[in-house]
Simulated assay, not measured.
Amino acid sequence: MNTADLNHLVESLVEIALTDDSKLRPGADDLILRKRKALARLQDSDSFRRLLEQAEFAERLRSLMDALREKWRDFSSQGIQRIASLDPESFMRHYLLPSVPVVLEAAASEWPAINKWCPQWFQETFGNQDVEISDHRRSDMNYEARFGAHRRTVPFGEFLERVKSDRTNDCYLVAQNKLLEKPAFERLLDDIGDLPGILDRSRKDAESVQLWLGPAGSSTPIHHDLTDGLIVQVDGRKRVILLSPYETEELQRAYRNIGRAGPGIEPIGSTTTRTIGWSGEVVLGPGDILFVPLGWWHCVENLTPCISLSMQNLVSAGYRWDHPDFRGYF
């Protein structure tokens, strides 16, 4: 709310407050005088002055964000960088601390998971285990916000048959299903390698590392995370579209009528460059790692059956964006 909105609100409140009174005293001049007096009293109150100060601060902050957004668009005109090799100091200096996304190509290619995990291996190894998935998502635009209503426990082998045969967003094993917390799957953590100086091995656990497994066409709508993190592509190919935090107001303006789940990758991918102004798009293959900084909006689509990891155990993971009553989705 800016100062003009605030003054309009105050005038509207005065109008509403005096509507019934005006029926008892139909004199127009008297009504106008009383409105002016009521408005003056309200604008002179401590509460109004505090609201006005907050509105003026919000306008200054918005102006700053507008300037930073234009600066970022100029800086990022080359898109998301892809780096073949990167030492920890350079990663910290050029990407993590300034919050710049980057793809570390094939950085996880030697991890046991990359050379072992695939839908067929999971089916042969864990097919008889029951797992929780997110199911029946196509019928609910707000499936992310109503995650609990879509939780379903199924035989892993049955789910993996759907993963291998269907192109759909109807089913997906997502981070919230907490597969790695189940005793039968804890040993999968041993197949996850390390990035010395970038990942904190002491926090390689099911709280900081989550597994995603879904068919081609499964996706995650636009959202941002509250901490810095990595997307590690284990098997298959994944498409990710990213938007800077500086695009938040433009994004909300463009999609304010979208439900809590937020727009998916197709509306973002088809309209971003026209409506939002700037976005970065990458495709990840097995062994690739994408650094997604805190607050960066992103939406994801699996181009093939995919297995991925999201990891929040970076060595400097103390940065967190806590904001009350805001879930990270529109």
Rank of each mutant, 00 (worst) to 15 (best):
S109R: 15
V163L: 04
A145I: 04
P196I: 02
L6V: 06
A38K: 08
P98C: 13
K204P: 02
N142I: 07
L195T: 02
F57Y: 06
R167T: 14
L195G: 02
E11I: 01
R187F: 09
A145E: 06
S308F: 01
L68A: 11
S279G: 14
V10F: 13
L242Q: 01
R36I: 11
L309K: 07
G217C: 11
V300A: 00
P286Y: 01
N302D: 07
V131D: 02
W121N: 05
Q233V: 08
A175G: 15
H323Y: 08
N142G: 03
A106V: 06
Q123A: 14
D235N: 06
H136W: 01
V209H: 12
A108R: 00
N302C: 13
S208W: 10
P221G: 02
R62P: 00
D170Y: 00
I114T: 13
V209F: 08
R151G: 02
N313E: 13
Y143C: 06
Q233T: 06
H136P: 00
S63Y: 03
P196N: 14
Y143N: 09
S47A: 10
R34T: 01
Y246I: 00
Y255Q: 02
K182C: 05
H224Q: 01
T227S: 08
S76R: 13
Y329L: 03
P183C: 13
D200I: 05
D194A: 05
G197T: 06
L290N: 03
N302K: 09
Q312R: 14
D225P: 14
L290W: 05
L51H: 06
T271P: 00
K204N: 07
D5S: 11
K182A: 09
R82Q: 09
E161V: 06
D228P: 12
D20K: 15
G269N: 08
Y143P: 01
T304H: 07
E144P: 01
R62H: 13
I192A: 03
L230G: 04
L188D: 05
E281D: 14
T153Q: 15
Q210M: 07
L195H: 04
Y143F: 15
G280E: 10
R320C: 14
E186S: 06
F147I: 03
S109P: 02
V234M: 10
L213V: 15
G262H: 04
L68W: 14
Q81F: 03
G229L: 04
E250N: 15
D135Y: 14
G269K: 05
S63W: 04
L290C: 07
A106M: 07
R50C: 10
N142L: 05
L68H: 14
A175Y: 03
F291S: 00
S202C: 13
F126K: 09
F122M: 15
Q120D: 14
E132A: 06
L211R: 08
T125F: 09
I83K: 07
P112A: 10
E56K: 11
S63R: 07
L251I: 13
S208A: 09
G214F: 08
H8C: 02
R260C: 03
L13E: 11
W121T: 03
T248W: 13
L173A: 06
F75W: 11
L309W: 02
M92C: 07
I192S: 05
